[in-house]
Nucleic acid binder design. Structure first.
Lengths: 217, 217
DNA sequence: CGGTTAATTGAACGCATTCAACACGAGTGG
DNA sequence: CCACTCGTGTTGAATGCGTTCAATTAACCG
């Protein structure tokens, strides 16, 4: 998918502790249980968040109950930084997780914290790129390609070897603009072609990188 | 679609001349002919743009030739402000148009210009909201709904009554993640139900606002 | 006017969805 | 330890929405 930073992730590139400290300086920390809501859709956006432990999912529900998942956020990721007055997507704890938070007004007031400013700008950049990629994927890619794309992205986040999927098939489907059945079919198809291998439903390994990459293009 | 500013558009809300002057202070102005490229996909993003006259389209081409249109920008709109190092989408003149440009480095250097800063932040906010809406639309809406959504958005940009469509059916299709044929069918369908009326192919009028709004939801 | 491109319409196809049944895995309690 | 249940995921068959391919019509421009 993106891979703007081939090997060195921007999160690990600079000492994680520096940013952590910057956050601690200005805000608090809170734990959320699996499936707990961190903020609601259309809620006023007064805080800024950073994942410490666990995985967070953003999603939007239409009036008639259709759901679109915005993205998944891993430790080190900032989220909830839409510059608008309120959150268009809700955020929920996908797994039990711990989150740091900063009051937005604090960010503006203590504008001296260059570390924090830089991180927010960088996160905004990343957020926009993800959104743009998402648009292209949903607008112009087949189910097979979308699923391949998703697995690629997941693999890039984690170290090589076994990749853990913290989200359900429903979450994947709602992210990809598909149904769970289609996602499932594509997964078994890719597995049938030995491109990926699923020892269990929430865990996989890429067997043919080039083949998967070609699909995800 | 969005309608964050029910009646008063942010572009017209503050005197347009003030921002225009802010841009003139720091940058230049350039004219582009219909279909001319303003910047290329994956080109380094060193400038920031603002439409003065005409309409601009952003789009991204995949390796195998599929195209996704990002958005359409009207007079007053800022574009090309992805915070990344380079443009993920290309920008082209949809019609003959005139554009103001500012060097990004200038924006950072002369960070004193509050007028400009505010405009950029506001434009970034709007850009993200559009992207988010776009994702929901492409991920979870039917062809009929997408087309209705599009017509709604176009109508909101212009004064009531006749609405002019500066883009081709192909542009619409590539924005909506559909084919021209499907777009055409949906348009004739909506016209058949007297929800909209097309006196000519590039010009329409909404007949049943509530019906269209219900579809665009 | 022709000549060219853009848009509409029709018919057949195919991909993803829908609806339904089945399999698997994790907990729970006998 | 096994039986039972419940949630989650997979598989199958039928349907339908949007696409594809092809033909026709409309708009644009010399």
């Amino acid at each position: 998918m993106t891979l703007a930073y081939p090997m060195s992730d921007p999160r690990t590139a600079r000492p994680a502790t520096a940013l952590t400290q910057a956050f601690e300086r200005h805000g608090g920390r809170q734990a959320f249980a699996r499936d707990e809501e961190i903020y609601a859709q259309d809620q006023e956006a007064e805080l800024l968040y950073r994942v410490v432990r666990g995985v967070v999912r953003t999603s939007r529900l239409t009036v008639d109950g259709r759901r679109q998942v915005g993205d998944f956020y891993y430790p080190g990721d900032l989220f909830g930084l839409e510059p608008g007055p309120d959150h268009r997507f809700a955020a929920e704890a996908l797994t039990d997780c711990e989150v740091q938070l900063v009051r937005r007004s604090a960010v503006r007031a203590f504008a001296g914290d260059a570390e924090l400013d830089r991180a927010i700008l960088e996160a905004t950049r990343q957020e926009m790129e993800r959104l743009q990629d998402h648009v292209v994927m949903l607008g112009r890619k087949s189910a097979r390609e979308r699923v391949a794309c998703f697995l690629m992205a997941m693999a890039e986040r984690q170290a090589d070897g076994q990749v853990e999927l913290p989200m359900s098939r429903q979450d994947m489907a709602d992210y990809l603009g598909l149904t769970i059945e289609t996602v499932s079919r594509m997964l078994t198809q890719l597995q049938g072609e030995s491109i990926v291998e699923f020892p269990s439903t929430r865990r996989f390994q890429i067997r043919k990188w080039t083949a998967l990459e070609a699909l995800a293009a």
